[in-house]
């Protein structure tokens, strides 16, 4: 008897926590279907429901809200920077994990030091440098910025490569395979988890990033923006009363693909973090 009460209490407590955690998400979804465009401050559940927010967002772009355009911009930026940075990360982590050369330790130490600088500081300087090359407000500039320094984030992938038995590579070497062959034909095919993790996480970065895009795409021309800046702009004081529900609709639309990718990725994320740190 005591056991069942205990068990019910345990699950009720969890359910309570879940409700607490999901309330804002529920509010997001409910408001996105609201018939009232501004912030509804008196009722949690909107009084009237409609699909207007989605319809306006997707098919009636105006000067403020150009969601399809932003989505396309972000998608292109994400695909390009994901390709470059995945290659960079995998290349650096393989070199640092599996190869031995004189500069290995010094380079790793430099990477640790560089990671201690506040990212925003470098971003501000990057903005000036791009500006002196006239590359601000261009997507190419943003792609370069997202992917240029990607090599520094090699630690999780290195942790994975460290777990691949050395004997495997040595056997291949005895058979006469070159390092490049070992990398592409032996190590990469058995590294699917970490490749998936690297690709998804670098694909997600431009979708999740807000501040870097805001610094670089600062022209105020709505059609150049990414989803994050566009949605942020909708909450401007002068716009929020007409666009808040549409902001929620945009939030829902962009969250669906991102959540799916995130949930696929998180499994590898956990493996990477714990796997990497066990070995110190």
């Amino acid at each position: 008897m005591k056991k069942t009460v205990n068990s019910i209490g345990r699950h009720l407590f969890l359910a309570f926590l879940v409700v607490f955690w999901l309330t804002p998400i529920a509010w997001l979804v409910l408001t996105s279907f609201s018939g009232y465009p501004g912030v509804n401050i008196s009722h949690f559940v909107p009084k009237s429901f409609s699909l207007d927010n989605y319809r306006l967002l997707l098919w009636n772009a105006d000067t403020v809200a150009q969601f399809p355009r932003w989505f396309l911009n972000t998608l292109i930026i994400a695909i390009c920077s994901c390709t470059i940075s995945s290659f960079y990360v995998l290349m650096v982590s393989y070199a640092m994990s599996c190869m031995r050369f004189k500069m290995r330790k010094p380079l790793m130490n430099i990477a640790v030091i560089l990671n201690l600088f506040p990212g925003i500081l470098a971003m501000i300087a990057v903005y000036f440098i791009l500006k002196s090359f006239n590359m601000t407000n261009s997507h190419i500039g943003l792609i370069l910025v997202y992917s240029g320094g990607a090599g520094l984030g090699y630690l999780i992938a290195k942790g994975f490569f460290d777990t691949i038995p050395v004997s495997l590579r040595e056997a291949a070497k005895l058979e006469g395979a070159s390092e490049q062959k070992i990398f592409t034909k032996i190590v990469l095919p058995i590294s699917k988890p970490i490749i998936v993790y690297t690709v998804i996480s670098s694909f997600l970065a431009p979708w999740m990033d807000f501040i870097l895009a805001k610094i670089i795409l600062n022209s105020g021309i709505s059609k150049d923006w990414t989803v994050a800046i566009g949605l942020y702009n909708m909450l401007d004081k002068s716009l929020i009363n007409n666009y808040f529900s549409r902001f929620c609709a945009g939030g829902v639309l962009v969250s669906i693909p991102i959540s799916i990718l995130f949930i696929i990725m998180q499994r590898f994320y956990v493996e990477g973090i714990t796997g990497g740190s066990v070995k110190g």
Binding site: M91, V92, A95, M99, L114, F117, S147, G151
Partner: peptide, 22 residues
């Protein structure tokens, strides 16, 4: 010397987009 091939572009990227700005 495969590490040179692997590291050349990533290191260049870090130099241009992190070290020089800093």
């Amino acid at each position: 010397k495969f590490h040179i091939t692997l590291l050349f572009f990533p290191v260049m990227g870090v130099i241009v987009f992190t070290i020089i700005p800093l």
